[in-house]
């Protein structure tokens, strides 16, 4: 009983300051748009109205509905993310178990985090277009490519996370390599997979949006941003930006839920 109350208390303690700061940000937004004019910065209620009309005024299948565009972008991001997870985990397992891969491939994986990979997006779209692949494949490829690297790095760190006495312990049981992997390395890596996954989710959404820029695509949040930019529809740009933020936040929310579920199953810690 008291524990629940203190839990509630904690939730209020964290939520209240966030709420106050968020309200302050909205007030600030109103103030700025009053000063520089709604043509440059539309008021929050205008943006909300545009978003509302778009989402509720049209069927979900209509290109006028931003949810439709969010769905197109989300599909590319999720397909890319799925490939990134499968490939990233597989390569991380390889790197942890084969010294040659660790020494030859791992430095490049780390170095690739310092370069603006997103710059290849237009080229990937054009090249895959020449091969007859347009729409989802190039976008998913870019999303997946971006999301791949954090997962490899996170998983390699996680699979190596157990300290030496934990490995010694497995050795005293003369556990097989597979047992060490299944009972020690893999469970230990989960705590490192989720932070990496959060980064990858954010990157995959960004990748999908940017990949929609050079295609002249008609659908997707990136295409919507570009159209708004061409025709000077400030409200449309803002509404699309809010939708992009909502998409990112909801995918991150799902990740957080999965993490919380696993955490609960492990008694409250990862």
């Amino acid at each position: 009983m008291t524990r629940e109350q203190s839990g509630l208390r904690r939730a209020v303690d964290t939520a209240f300051p966030v709420f106050v700061v968020a309200v302050a940000a909205v007030v600030l937004w109103y103030a700025i748009s009053a000063i520089i004019g709604t043509a440059l910065l539309p008021r929050p209620d205008q943006v909300a109205a545009t978003l509302g009309t778009s989402v509720f005024g049209w069927p979900v299948t209509s290109p006028r509905n931003l949810l439709y565009h969010a769905g197109v972008t989300a599909e590319a991001a999720l397909v890319g993310l799925a490939f990134a997870i499968v490939l990233g985990v597989a390569i991380a397992v390889g790197i942890v178990h084969f010294r040659v891969l660790d020494r030859s491939l791992m430095p490049w994986v780390i170095a690739s985090q310092t370069i603006p990979i997103l710059a290849i997006a237009p080229m990937v779209v054009v090249v895959l277009g020449n091969l007859g692949l347009s729409g989802l494949p190039p976008k998913a490829a870019i999303s997946g490519y971006l999301a791949f690297f954090p997962i490899v790095v996170g998983m390699v760190t996680g699979l190596r996370a157990p300290d030496s006495i934990q490995f010694d312990l497995m050795r005293t049981y003369s556990a097989s390599g597979q047992q060490v992997f299944a009972k020690l390395r893999l469970p230990a890596s989960v705590a490192f997979l989720f932070p990496a996954l959060r980064v990858s989710v954010a990157l995959s959404v960004m990748g999908a949006i940017v990949a929609e820029l050079p295609t002249g695509a008609q659908a997707g949040l990136g295409a919507r941003l570009l159209a708004g930019s061409y025709y000077g529809q400030t409200l449309m740009i803002w509404a699309t930006l809010v939708m992009a933020a909502l998409l990112s936040a909801s995918l991150l929310g799902v990740t957080a839920l999965a993490e919380a579920g696993l955490r609960a199953w492990r008694g409250g810690r990862l």
Binding site: D163, I165, Q166, D168, L169, L184, P187, A188, V190, R266, R269, L270
Partner: peptide
């Protein structure tokens, strides 16, 4: 071992 080396999960 010197430390319990229990698996936290």
């Amino acid at each position: 071992f010197q430390a319990p080396a229990l698996y936290p999960w």
